[in-house]
Structures are given as structure tokens and as C-alpha cells.
Nucleic acid binder design. Structure first.
Lengths: 207, 207
DNA sequence: ACCCCAATCTAAGCGCCGTTTAGAATCTAA
DNA sequence: TTAGATTCTAAACGGCGCTTAGATTGGGGT
């Protein structure tokens, strides 16, 4: 993992630190992450990161913001590819879990605000709002097509939001993986069945 | 916060450390927690905790186990007080969120496995299984009374489990509180509406 | 071509952290 | 009373986040 470089100046240290940090989380878990270790993996001295980030939480926040951008792209694509609004809602949920599989390092920091909440990175505070906006619009589309209860969309928005975060939290923290093995299934398959359950409950509900 | 004591021996240091740690998390957040700080708050030297816990994660694990016991009591009481199975399912969800409000310090450690997963405390690995068991039985009761789809209960079990964890994660991490303020509601009220939505979707679904 | 300056990195050091070790103080039981 | 186990303190180790001072480099103006 430790990188070497030809010249005294690194060249692209900022991006290299972001990448090294994500790789470290994915390889050894978020408990193994320290700024000194990330710098070591990137092949620079412990003080070098401070020329690119004001402090440790700013680096984590930058990764979290990057993750929210990647997540939003995935959610939008999933929503747009769905033929109906209620399928779009399920597709958003599945895309969230798929994102967790593809970018677990990013997601770990997104889920741990005590690490990635940095006053130095103001956009981190609003990084997730666009996804909530997309979710809200999709729920409203469901209401228009009759596949969600009329009225305030907020309870369903919050429920799907919490459901997505809950599934990926259980997955990344371990218990879901263990339970799936025990039950002879996989987190992806279980997510698909949860999605199907959600869609059937919405589509098949009484007036 | 720093305790003083009359004698050289503390007397009940183990419990005092657990309490000081929980109080510290609730007062200054989990980012402010260190074993030295907990020992300082309890009025002992930095090495004293090592006579009661093999390492830092064992202390955190003990708190997590304690929390799971408190949580299980609350969930059981909520389930038993409910008149029907589907109401019991909703009551479990609301009780989970109520627990988060009453014991946020415990819950923070329960949700962060990288801190509280200790091989020294083997019961920590199975601390949450009784709650899942209760949830599974309740879903099966719902199936018997016709308020849940027949077949494998697992998707609904996992969905309610994830929903609970998602809501409390969003709450403790901040975004839910902010969004509720913005929408003119409270996390408890929103949880009640999510619960009502869940129950109505289950009870009002088509065959 | 030169030089100067800003940007980038290293080296060294601060206090705090988790943890270990040696030893002092205290409780318990014979 | 006293021997031994228990519980605490004191001191030390390396690693951490972060700061400061100084070395190295690349680019822009003359």
C-alpha cells in the first residue's frame, strides 16, 4: 500500500490521501484509521496532510461528500430507469444497498457523523439533502399514481430513508451478514425481498 | 463530574466507570470518550480501569450488553401491552425509539460495533439476538392473525429491525432532529406516524 | 536566463491517548 | 495478628492529532 514517488513534491497528494483513506477503511475497518497511517500509506510524512486539509475531520468530511455525490448519481439512475413511481421507490432502496456494497469505505464515514462532521467543510452538512429531495419527489409521484397514501409524504419518506440506512448499517456492522449466512441467504437477496414486500404493501393496500 | 472517595479503594469502581462512560457520551458525544477521561471522571488513575476490564473495548461492550438488556425489557413490555400482534409490532418499533431517547449513551455504543465488539466479552456477540427473537415471534403472530403476508417472516422481521435502527441512527446522528425542526414536528411524533403507516399498510393490504 | 516567491513537503516536538509494569495501600480470612 | 489476594497509584512506552520551523521544489516576472 505505501506509495513511493520520484520527486520531493507529491503532485496529487490530496486525491491520494482520499483514496488511501477509503482503501484503509475497506481493508482494515474504520477502527484502524488514523491520519498518520493514511499519510504513511500515501508515502508522505505525518504533517503533509495538513497542507490539504485543516484537520482530520475535514478529510473524512471530504470523503463523505464525495460519497454522497456517488450515491445521488446511483439513486437518480435507479429512479429514472424504473417504469413506475412505486418501482422507483423500491429501486432507490436497492440502489442504496448496492452503493453500500460498492463503496463501503465512503458509507462508513457517511454513517459516522462524529468523524465526518466538520465545521471546516460546510457542504458536508447538506450533502444528503439532494437524496432526500429525490426520495420525497418519488413518494409524491407514488401518491399521484395511487401507490402511496395521500396526505403528508413525510412518514413514508422518513420510513424509506431509515429503512435504507438501517439495512446498510446492519450490513456493514456485521449482524446482517451473520444472520443471512445462518438463514442461507445473502444481504442482497434479503434486500430484494424487503423491497418486494414494500412495493406489494404499497400497491396492494386497501383504500 | 469527577468523583472523590474517602478511602484508597474505590469500592464500586466497575459500575462507576460504566456510569461515567455513559454520562460522558450523553454530555459531550461519543467523540469525546477516552478511557483516561472516564477514569478521570470517576476519580481514579488512568491504570485503574484495567483491574476491571481487560481493555477499552471490553468496557464499551459491557455497556452495550447492559443496553441490550434494558432494550429487551422495554420491547417485551411493549409487545405484551399491545392488544393485537400488529399493534405489538408497532409498539416494538416505538419502544425502540423511546429507548433511544432514554438511553442515548448506551445506544451509541450498541450502534458502533468497531468500538464495542470485544472478543473478551463473548456475550456481546449475541446480545441482540433475544430482541430479534421477540420480533420474529411477533411477526409470526401477525401472520397467524392475518395482519402480515404468509410465508417466510424474515423480510418483514429484517425490515422492522432495519427501520428501528435507521430511525434511531438518524436521530442520534443529527439529521432527523434537524429535519423535524424544519418540518415543525418531532422525532417521536414522526415515529408515531411511521408506526401508524406501517400498521395501516399491514392491516389494510389486499389478499 | 535568472531569481524570487508561493506552494509543498520534512523534521521535531507538544500534549493526550491506550496499555503495561512495579509497587503501595487496603481488605479478607485464618 | 498476619499472609495473601485485591485494588489502587506512579511511571513509562509507543502512537495519535496537530503545530512550528525549516528544507525543497515549481512557476511567473524581469
Amino acid at each position: 500500500m505505501p506509495q513511493t514517488r520520484a520527486s520531493y513534491h507529491h503532485g496529487g497528494l490530496r486525491d491520494a490521501l482520499l483514496a488511501a483513506c477509503v482503501a484503509l477503511i475497506e481493508a482494515e475497518g474504520i477502527g484502524a484509521v488514523s491520519l498518520r497511517r493514511v499519510a504513511r500509506d500515501a508515502g508522505v510524512s505525518p504533517g503533509a496532510p495538513y497542507h490539504h486539509f485543516p484537520d482530520r475531520s475535514a478529510l473524512f468530511a471530504a470523503i463523505a461528500v464525495q460519497g454522497h455525490q456517488l450515491l445521488l448519481e446511483r439513486l437518480r439512475a435507479a429512479r429514472e430507469a424504473a417504469p413506475t413511481a412505486v418501482r422507483g421507490l423500491g429501486a432507490i432502496l436497492e440502489a442504496y444497498v448496492a452503493f453500500a456494497r460498492e463503496h463501503p469505505g465512503h458509507l462508513h464515514l457517511m454513517l459516522r457523523s462524529e468523524l465526518s462532521a466538520s465545521p471546516q467543510v460546510p457542504e458536508a452538512a447538506h450533502a444528503g439533502e439532494a437524496a432526500i429531495q429525490l426520495l420525497t419527489e418519488t413518494v409524491q409521484d407514488c401518491q399521484r399514481e395511487g401507490s402511496a397514501p395521500a396526505g403528508d409524504p413525510e412518514p413514508l419518506v422518513a420510513a424509506v430513508w431509515a429503512l435504507a440506512i438501517g439495512i446498510v448499517t446492519l450490513w456493514l456492522d456485521g449482524p446482517l451478514e451473520g444472520r443471512c449466512v445462518q438463514l442461507g441467504t445473502t444481504p442482497e437477496a434479503l434486500t430484494a425481498r424487503i423491497t418486494a414486500l414494500l412495493e406489494s404493501l404499497l400497491a396492494g393496500r386497501a383504500a
